[in-house]
């Protein structure tokens, strides 16, 4: 039987939605027993949120001042000590999980399965490679622990309504002091979070300035949408890095994605493959974005977007 240890992602107060998506993936493994580990300075509030998730057997609360900020070098030895007796260790394929899980895998002496998008069996999964241009079915050895990250865009968050037991735990591990947290500069935004928003409006290089990105923000606000960007727009400094969508930015799966002045490079498209409806607005009818768009509109964004914002606002 599979016994899965799942590493929760949180900011010290709130459980990140990526965790409920990971649980949804883990629950696809038939008969799996799922324990969620919360590493924090004081994790009671987060542990209580994790205990509400369906399919969770128990929550392990690992309080330690050293866990105040998620540093892979500090967490990995604790996770690998805790992993004893588990057949699987899962984390989300967010920057948190991508940083931590391979370090855990190496300590356990195994390769990692990155970005699980489908569960075919306890040791058999599908994952994307080549920026999503190919999907590979992989199989891990049944004799070794499976360490994996879950491509969160492939899963809907599992429902709440559970009340799993919460237990304190303190694995025996030497914690290094060679890595020190300094600060985090989080973008301040009242808009829905890009990774969970039902609707997302993104702008590309064509916006041509930070000021013009207001067009994107106004449309996003009219729709109640999150706002994203292509790499070119981030590189040019129009918007901050946390807005980048794509292979090396965020992989998202909103119901509606509106790409404005974005050409549709493969590295961008891989971030939106799972969107419900893709709308493209681009002045070049040959732009590759139209090959994946469900609804396309050829024209100048500087004419179209203000009109669209007005039309949406008057709905």
């Amino acid at each position: 039987m599979s016994k899965i240890l799942l590493i929760a992602e949180h900011d010290g107060a709130t459980l990140n939605p990526s965790t409920a998506k990971c649980v949804a993936c883990a629950a696809q493994i038939s008969g799996a027993e799922i324990d969620v580990a919360v590493f924090a300075e004081e994790g009671a509030a987060v542990a209580a949120q994790a205990a509400e998730l369906q399919s969770v057997s128990k929550v392990l609360q690992l309080d330690n001042p050293a866990n105040a900020n998620a540093l892979a070098a500090t967490l990995a030895p604790q996770v690998s000590a805790l992993a004893d007796g588990y057949s699987h260790v899962f984390g989300p394929s967010t920057t948190f999980g991508k940083d931590l899980m391979p370090r855990v895998a190496a300590l356990l002496g195994v390769n990692q399965i990155s970005d699980i998008m489908e569960v075919l069996g306890s040791h058999k999964f599908k994952r994307p490679i080549y920026a999503g241009n190919a999907i590979v079915t992989v199989e891990a050895s049944p004799d070794l622990p499976v360490v994996a990250t879950v491509r969160t865009a492939s899963y809907q968050a599992i429902e709440a309504g559970n009340s799993a037991a919460v237990e304190a735990a303190s694995p025996d591990a030497d914690l290094p002091t060679h890595t020190r947290f300094l600060e985090i500069q989080a973008g301040k935004s009242d808009r829905p979070d890009l990774q969970t928003a039902a609707k997302v409006v993104s702008g590309g290089r064509a916006l041509a300035s930070a000021e013009n990105f207001d067009l994107i923000f106004k449309l996003a606000d009219a729709l109640g949408a999150g706002a994203g960007a292509s790499r070119a727009a981030v590189d040019a400094g129009y918007v901050p890095n946390e807005m980048q969508v794509g292979q090396t930015g965020k992989i998202i799966a909103p119901e509606l994605y509106i790409a404005i002045g974005i050409s549709g490079a493969i590295q961008h498209l891989t971030g939106i493959k799972d969107a419900g409806t893709i709308v493209a607005i681009n002045k070049d009818e040959e732009a590759p974005i139209f090959e994946v768009a469900d609804i396309g509109l050829v024209g100048d964004l500087f004419d179209i977007v203000p009109q669209l914002t007005e039309a949406v606002s008057s709905q």
Partner: peptide, 18 residues
């Protein structure tokens, strides 16, 4: 980790132009 089988990604259905 063994790579058993490779396949192309699912294609999206053809869209409309407005």
């Amino acid at each position: 980790v063994a790579n058993l089988q490779f396949e192309p990604p699912q294609q999206r259905a053809k869209g409309i132009m407005v």
